[in-house]
């Protein structure tokens, strides 16, 4: 089966090879790699390959997740198979004190926190945390509800994307 996979890669040496490894490991035959280098990070990459069956594709996806590769879309025989969106948000509040791991776990029930960036002026003051969250298009409502619930409960100010 013919697969087109869109992913976002960190603009660092070796990241493309790292992303291609699961495909070759599970018998995928790579036919094209399109790099969209427009100065943005992550860099958008589209890989076209052929695999034997659905099981092989599932193994590739699983390994890509292990490699923390950010998949945005998969087309199988030209039809959308899987599509994701990355939401960026900022929390302002006592995020670390109010069990940051629990916050991330709750978000991960609806999406997947793919990166986190924290600025803490001092332990007493409020910290600011930026999260990038990957989410299936069908799960966006659930994710928003989860985030709003966390903010209400832990008294965080939420800054959402447009």
């Amino acid at each position: 089966m013919k697969v087109d996979m869109k992913l976002g890669l960190k603009d660092v040496p070796g990241s493309l090879l790292w992303a291609l490894e699961p495909i070759s490991l599970h018998g995928g035959n790579i036919v094209s790699v399109l790099h969209s280098r427009n100065g943005k990070d992550p860099v958008s990459v589209q890989i076209g390959f052929r695999v034997k069956d659905q099981k092989s594709l599932d193994l590739i996806k699983k390994d890509m997740k292990k490699h923390t590769i950010h998949l945005t879309e998969i087309l199988v025989e030209g039809r959308k198979y899987y599509s994701k969106k990355t939401l960026s948000i900022i929390f302002i509040g006592h995020i670390i004190d109010k069990d940051v791991l629990e916050t991330i776990d709750r978000i991960n029930e609806a999406g997947l926190v793919s990166s986190i960036d924290v600025l803490m002026p001092s332990p007493e003051e409020k910290s600011s945390v930026m999260l990038n969250i990957d989410v299936d298009n069908g799960n966006i409502k659930r994710l928003n509800k989860t985030i709003l619930g966390i903010c209400k409960e832990k008294q965080f100010l939420l800054i959402r994307s447009l």
Binding site: D117, P121, S128, M130
Partner: peptide, 18 residues
């Protein structure tokens, strides 16, 4: 009123403004 300079700095680091 609760927007911090740190939040603005984080946004800028990730190519955004608030």
């Amino acid at each position: 009123s609760d927007v911090t300079t740190e939040a603005i700095e984080l946004a800028r680091k990730h190519n955004h403004v608030i």
